[in-house]
């Protein structure tokens, strides 16, 4: 059904029927995956040299959002933890770039004043790790809708905290005057920035892929399906979920640091609960617990947004309708739908 579930029939010596079925699935998914990967590499390069900067920017945004969505999918899709506050991690990651740069230009706070990319990204991930550890430790004491609401509450707290810090622009946001500086490369070149983001996406996806199939991943997925049973097996579910939550926060913080470098303007608005909702939507749209789901979801989301907003300024209306229809009629997300159309779904 998914990449991860396709693989499970490989070592398990299932009957010949199952093997050929999984072969079919693998093909359908491989083709789509290859098309996406090819497009991600070819389109921005061609667009850049064809003077269509718009497409480079769109692709960069897509890739960054895909990283964040992959981070969310790790706990939402695989772990069943419906976090409604993940935009906060993206925002914190972005401010972890913006604030050091602000100080390196405007003096003050010499401890973190820097344009160094290593510092920015390490700071982004560290801040998000700590934030995730603190909020996760409390949130994971709750279940179901309470978890949704408490993660949302922590997201809103962060939003209001940033709004009220006028030094960093408060409500009006903060312009990042300099991008993160690295040895050898410069983020000021759009293709370099894009390449960095794309490479990051691949690394993150590979890491997530390894993790969800590891022993840790088995526990994480087990907790989604039957937490009680896991406890009866003698596993302390809380520790594993909290670890996953922190990892997810770190990934989103990393995406946030990239986003700050890309937009060079950050504001609390990027942490609003509606942003968290959009991120969640990308994950669901793509299909939860599919490795490529978040990428597909983010791509469809952005393309819809771009094409509909060209067609009408009221693009939110058809967008909302599509969102409702997709919830009501496409179960398992687009990845699931693709497989259904391919006739390879056995349910």
């Amino acid at each position: 059904m998914s990449i991860q579930q396709t693989e499970q029939s490989k070592p398990s010596s299932a009957g010949p029927g199952a093997a050929s079925r999984s072969g079919q699935r693998l093909n359908a998914e491989r083709i789509i995956t290859l098309i996406i990967l090819a497009a991600l590499i070819v389109v921005p390069v061609a667009a850049y040299y064809g003077d269509a900067r718009y497409w480079v920017d769109l692709a960069t945004r897509l890739v960054i959002l895909s990283i964040a969505a992959t981070g969310l999918n790790f706990i939402l899709g695989y772990g069943g933890m419906i976090s409604f506050g993940h935009a906060a991690f993206i925002g914190l990651g972005a401010y972890a770039v913006g604030i050091p740069v602000f100080h390196s230009i405007n003096d003050g706070f010499p401890l973190i004043a820097s344009n160094n990319g290593f510092l920015h990204f390490v700071l982004a991930m560290a801040v998000c790790a700590v934030f995730a550890l603190l909020t996760g430790a409390i949130s994971l004491r709750t279940r179901s809708v309470h978890f949704i609401m408490i993660t949302m509450a922590f997201g809103q707290m962060t939003y209001f905290a940033i709004v009220s810090i006028e030094k960093y622009g408060g409500d009006d946001g903060l312009t990042i005057d300099l991008r993160s500086e690295w040895p050898l490369i410069t983020f000021d070149h759009p293709l370099v920035l894009y390449g960095f983001c794309l490479a990051s996406l691949f690394v993150v996806m590979y890491l997530v892929h390894r993790m969800v199939n590891s022993r840790f991943g088995m526990v994480l997925q087990g907790a989604k399906q039957n937490e009680e049973r896991l406890r009866a097996l003698g596993i302390n579910v809380y520790n594993y979920q909290l670890t996953a939550y922190v990892i997810s926060g770190i990934i989103c913080g990393y995406a946030g640091a990239l986003l700050g470098n890309f937009t060079t303007f950050i504001s609390p608005e990027m942490m609003d609960w509606t942003r968290s909702g959009e991120l969640m939507f990308m994950v669901i749209l793509g299909g939860v617990s599919f490795l490529f789901g978040p990428l597909i979801g983010a791509a469809v989301f952005l393309l819809l947004e771009e094409s509909l907003s060209r067609f009408t300024i009221h693009w939110h209306l058809p967008f909302g309708v599509l969102l409702i229809l997709s919830v009501l009629f496409i179960r398992g997300g687009l990845s699931g739908l693709l497989q259904k159309l391919g006739g390879a779904r056995d349910r």
Partner: peptide, 14 residues
Amino acid sequence: ARAGHSFHFWTPAR
């Protein structure tokens, strides 16, 4: 679960 803790992130469990 019997074999000890599961904080192993890399090797595919299967």
